[in-house]
Design a protein around this nucleic acid. Sequence first.
DNA 1: GTCTATACATGGATAGAC
DNA 2: GTCTATCCATGTATAGAC
Lengths: 221, 221
Amino acid sequence: MRHGRRRGRLTRVSSTKDKLLDATVETLRTHGIAGVSARTIAATAGVNQALVFYHFGSVDQLLAAACATATAQRVEVFHERFAEVGSLRELLAVGRELHTVERGTGHVAVLAQLLAGAQSDPRLGEATAAALDMWARELETVLDHVLRRTPLAGIADVAGLARAAAAAFIGIELYEGADPQGAGSALDALDQLGAILEAFDDLGPVASRALRAKVRQVTSK
Amino acid sequence: MRHGRRRGRLTRVSSTKDKLLDATVETLRTHGIAGVSARTIAATAGVNQALVFYHFGSVDQLLAAACATATAQRVEVFHERFAEVGSLRELLAVGRELHTVERGTGHVAVLAQLLAGAQSDPRLGEATAAALDMWARELETVLDHVLRRTPLAGIADVAGLARAAAAAFIGIELYEGADPQGAGSALDALDQLGAILEAFDDLGPVASRALRAKVRQVTSK
DNA sequence: GTCTATACATGGATAGAC
DNA sequence: GTCTATCCATGTATAGAC
């Protein structure tokens, strides 16, 4: 938790910079990328509009900064939760929890908005790519641990899976905004997929060997 | 293909309405949801800005209309390709093809932008939900067909899987804009996942039965 | 560091001529 | 149906007082 601190020194109340960073997240959440502006953000923060430019230079750069700090914050929170995960199903359960909790904080939704903005803004592109990478690296560690004692150990494309999972998460979050029911059934289906994959753990050596051969075939293609 | 036609009567050149619809897609692709406006769209279309309001009432409604027509168009194109799919791996191959082709047309990217905008615009929400449903229904049909002769037939949550796949696609498309390499490895991992799932087809009756039991356990939870 | 004031650009939307 | 002209709101960015 890095709130109330700056360069190691305690501050009584949150600084204007912090207020702007928090307000940026909040404004992205409520107004979307199309609705953020120096004025709307400053209004949410309760500070003067000119301070956006004084502290961050431009709205772009404020968005990029908010992306970095918010992501670091949320990843840190879930780092411990991920560490407790021992199986794929448990990982999916934490994923659901993350989905529910982050619905409240809005971090995933905000990341989705920034990612949408990043498609036509290189500066945001860098920031969001870094943010996604932070989540993906976290997932990589967990997946590595989870798959260790399964037939998929050493074969599964863990880095790719981690990124696919992160991307799917973003997509489902966006989906949720448009069609909550549809998004819910998508999450249910992922649970099922997890169950299917876990069923492989109980496989005998023959089936296990066949699986590994098939997966290798695809990977080397 | 519904271009050049309107209410069943041939028209010499594309009408202003069509020009605006096409220009909307193009503008979303290049400027993103944050960069579309009546003026930018009209400029792309080469028509007067006031015509946006004359024909569609507001920018919102133009976006919603463009979402509907563009999606109907692209779904129609891929309908035939989906009909040829006989296995999960083939479906994933078509998915890759769709990903590549739609990178060019930009349809998925546009849908992602609209979805981002939909988070804070109910009118867009309806339009994008309908668009996603069109894709999801298409995928449902294919998945049903693909899973028919596998141990997962009748058990898999096809509707949910279809929606998860659609959501993942959107997410990966956004990912691609920020980090093409990361998105590529995500797609590779999905191929692998397909291979793993297909390996179940070759399973003996005992393992197959165990799998079905495990999946049922999750579904009924 | 923060505020006021201000410049200048862009965007939504409409009225009225053609 | 289309264009010009226009109004007004909003947004970016900076200068200068405090």
